[in-house]
Design a protein around this nucleic acid. Structure first.
Lengths: 119, 119
DNA sequence: TTAATATACATTGACAGGCGAAGTATATTG
DNA sequence: CAATATACTTCGCCTGTCAATGTATATTAA
């Protein structure tokens, strides 16, 4: 729960952009898809999700249009922009790099020297 | 900078514990070691580092003692506790799981269906 | 008819962790 | 003696996540 929240932090935008790289979509659908794909281990809470959309819009990484549903609630469809694609690739490489670094930091290699340093 | 901060969030304790699994140590040394091992890509800022120590202490994951240096500034040596080892393993598995889930979410598999969804 | 549930979006305020900045103290070096 | 490195500490800000709450429409069952 709390750990997942912190792992999510800073990655929600990348996750949303990843979805939008494949197809235009709207908040509710993206959220459901993430829950499905992660076997319900992850779930973007609504406030988190819509907050991320707002930031993505402000950054010009996505644009949106209102769907013309004849039935049901209105949908705000999002589309990734050219700038969004660039940002997505940057997010990905930063993510990969960060994972590599942390993996190195927690790698259980040999004990450098079991001196104990002290009493 | 900002990305690294968010990647760090929630993982500082795991990183510190990883270091303490190998040897007792003190803040300054741990920080230098992390900078070294990450080729200066990561750096725990002091406020972050000491904040994490405080939480680790409160959680009973580490204990400390003052070094008896005859010269230089005093050092607060930390030692991982039994509970800390358990916590570390939990952190690691949660980390691995989270990485796996996010990796899945951003995996560039085939386009599920290029319908475009709308105009 | 109406209560429940699902779809769909939006906002507010609280919370927590990382960080910039500033401070304390000791030792070394130019 | 000024600068730099070691070493720890604290304050207040910022930002992203979340719980809670609210809006509105459609479907289904009692």
């Amino acid at each position: 729960m709390s750990i997942a929240s912190d792992m999510l932090r800073g990655n929600t935008e990348m996750i949303i952009l990843a979805h939008l790289m494949k197809k235009e979509s709207y908040g509710y659908e993206i959220n459901k898809h993430i829950q499905l794909k992660s076997s319900h281990q992850f779930e973007l809470k609504e406030a988190t999700l819509y907050g991320a959309f707002r930031r993505l819009e402000e950054a010009g990484h996505v644009s949106f249009y209102w769907g013309d549903e004849q039935t049901g609630a209105r949908r705000r469809y999002y589309r990734i922009t050219a700038g969004g694609r660039v940002a997505y690739e940057r997010y990905r490489s930063e993510w990969n790099e960060a994972v590599a670094v942390i993996t190195t930091l927690i790698a259980q290699d040999e004990v450098e020297k079991e001196d104990g340093t002290h009493a």
